[in-house]
């Protein structure tokens, strides 16, 4: 694994699970999700942005710090979650993920927007605000 990849892998894995967040509170960092708990996260929070990534995808790794920053910026309004498509292929298939990074924007459990490819932070913020009306 590359130096980059290692660093970012560790970071990706270092985030909390949704069960670490006390009832009634919102995370200030992206949650790690997988096929087993993504549904619970979508049920618990009305506005969720899911970052579909994989360790071999360089643009995904570049996007990671932007997601981290937006999780702080949107805390209380939008929850960010990261799913490793390599380890969660059923989720990737279900949502027909064919390019990564892909951001899936969920409103009340339904996909309302898909953002494909890494984009500048300002563009992402605008698309998230627009699609979730936050």
């Amino acid at each position: 694994m590359s130096l980059f990849g290692k660093k970012h892998d560790d970071k990706h894995e270092a985030h909390k699970r949704h069960t670490d967040i006390p009832e009634g509170e919102f995370p200030d960092e992206p949650l790690i999700v997988d096929s087993s708990d993504i549904d619970a996260v979508l049920k618990r929070f009305p506005n969720v942005v899911v970052d579909c990534w994989a360790p071999w995808c360089r643009p995904c790794l570049a996007l990671a710090p932007v997601i981290d920053e937006m999780a702080v910026e949107f805390q209380g309004k939008v929850v960010f979650a990261k799913i490793n498509t390599d380890k969660n292929q059923s989720f990737a298939r279900k949502h027909q993920i064919m390019n990564i990074p892909t951001l899936l924007i969920f409103k009340n459990g339904e996909v309302v927007e898909r953002i494909i490819g890494a984009r500048p932070r300002r563009t992402l913020e605008n698309m998230i605000k627009e699609s979730l009306k936050v």
Binding site: C57, T85, I97, M98, N99, I100, I116
Partner: peptide, 17 residues
């Protein structure tokens, strides 16, 4: 079909195919 089977990055997306 952008994002629905078209890719410009084989190392990113090859795996899905």
């Amino acid at each position: 079909f952008s994002g629905r089977g078209i890719s410009y990055c084989a190392t990113c997306d090859g795996f899905f195919f």
